[in-house]
Amino acid sequence: MSRTKAYNAIARGALWVAGAFILLLLAAFLGYMLYKGLPKLNLHFIFGKSSDLMAGGGVGAQLFNSFYMLFLSMAVSIPIAIGAGIYLAEYARENRLTYAIRLSVESLATVPSIVLGLFGMIIFVNWMHMGFSILGGSLTLVLLNLPLLVRVTEESIRTVPKSYEEASLSLGATKLQTVVKVVLPSALPGILTGITLTAGRALGETAILIFTAGTTVSRHLFDPDVMAGGETLAVHLWYLMSAGLVPDRDAIADGIGALLILTILVFNFILVLPLKYLQRHHVG
């Protein structure tokens, strides 16, 4: 009897250790990256031009590319994903087509991002002659965003009480009017949360972009030309560590690491927490 009690205590203790380890590791990880990188951040570094050979380059073009490509890819992904999410949540019957679509979304979500990158390279870079460009990278990024966004849209719509919809339909509204004016607005906080988290992921993505957006940037700072080279912050970090020639590459890498960590902190907390609050108090 006492032995089983001892096991009980040991197990409980071990689980506390595991939980604490997981939290402390994350804290140490983020803390170390910020500790190393934050001192490197200044206006010249964040908004300045990068240099190929000399020390003292900035990451302004890469920062601009990261957000520009995120914006372009989201502008394409969001309407398609919301349409597909609406179909799955509101229209789909349990038949073969629905099964195939669900399986496709799941599969798309598990395709390794390097494979999506090679697909983008065949289609956009070579076949459509876009070359390594912001446009090619953004369109390939759509493939990464779509499955995540479809899933959150469907889930958010499913949390909207059926009674809202029934009330609207019984008042004579069409299905489309009901979906657009009643269901979507109620599901909006959830969808926006999903969009923000997906955007945070897309910002740090690398493998998908190396062979579609490339590892170069436009000669002009903040160049909105979609055919210009589309190296992002994350790709620049990788490129510096694997082929960089600048003498201060470790310092730049630390700075980029801190910038990326700051970005995901902003996306995960400052943008998402208010939305989650809204979600809890708006629906239900």
């Binding site: 309407p79 398609i80 349409g83 229209y91 798309l108 999506l116 493939l143 489309l176």
Partner: peptide, 23 residues
């Protein structure tokens, strides 16, 4: 409009299947 909306939603959903097959 209702019909158009419906077809647009179906098309977006089917795009997922088309994409995975093209890949």
């Amino acid at each position: 409009y209702d019909k158009c909306g419906r077809y647009l939603f179906i098309a977006s959903a089917c795009l997922m299947t088309i994409l995975i097959f093209s890949i």
